[in-house]
Amino acid sequence: MKTFTYEKATSAEAAVADTAATTRFIAGGTNLLDLMKLQVETPEKLVDISRLPLAEIEDMDDGGLRIGALVPNSDLAADSRVIERYEVLSRALLAGASGQLRNKATTGGNLLQRTRCYYFYDTSTPCNKRERGTGCSAIGGFNRILAVLGTSDQCIATHPSDMAVAMRALDATIVTLKHDGDKRRLSIHDFYRLPGDTPDIETVLEPGELITHVELPAPPQGARQLYSKVRDRASYAFALVSVAGVVAVEDGKIASAALAFGGLGPMPWRDAAVEAALVGKVPSDDGFAAAADALLKGAQGFGSNDFKIPLARRTLIACLRDLTGE
């Protein structure tokens, strides 16, 4: 761990004002501290935001929910409103990490987890995400847990979050406070960036920009929700493939569908074409296969992760049966 300075923020405004490009906010620290020990992250300053008053979950007037960035994953998963109205989110949270980690990990931090690519964690190997321009060791290497969608020739990392996948299916909005004190509201659909030539830049957040809240709109009426996570062991493993689904069937037809995927891409993945293949149709295996085709049209395996493509197909079809079945 490289020596750093540590400051405790007294307010969100003070936290963002006191930042530079080499500053990191720290709350639960469940990912950042590991990365600092390995010198994958070497911030010069940590601003501790963990005591800021951002740990409340509030009802919004439109029937939605406003979640403070510091709400621990455990609390969010156990909140009765979340369990009742956003079951997909509660299930996704409980599918992630371990009890101890969920007690520490926060809502804002979870969105900003770094990839679990083996090579990203290993400073003795090249990695464009860790150090732009050094090369990607995962391409041509071992890449079982890495991405098949949205990759570039610079990076095939996946985003490891379960929570963020559910939030993408729920059309979450991320509320931030910028360095200059302005607030921003960002749709989660616009929040993450594809790797392209700059895999080290993962979100549209500006330096010093702090996530303060996540807002969930009211869930669609009558929709069924599901989070299905496929992994290499029964717990404490990142998703090989996960599906967050919010689907409503009315009058025998799919009225609405929101499907997001983990383990497949560099961001929690959502593709309008998948939903377009379903909405308005009578639920059927043919329709589900068409949705899977739409999802995986551009999928590319890199050897040891080739299996994710048929796995995603199988998992999606089974999930759609569950979401639309009797």
């Binding site: 190997t125 060791s137 041509g140 290497g141 071992f142 062991r233 717990s235």
Partner: peptide, 29 residues
């Protein structure tokens, strides 16, 4: 079911060299 110590065949380097990615069974297994 789970344990598999992987070497990168280009360098001989161990790829999954921590307990997050070298999968010993957890309680749920």
């Amino acid at each position: 079911l789970t344990e598999d110590l992987i070497h990168d065949t280009r360098t001989g380097k161990l790829v999954n060299r921590d307990l997050a990615e070298y999968h010993v069974p957890v309680n749920a297994d």
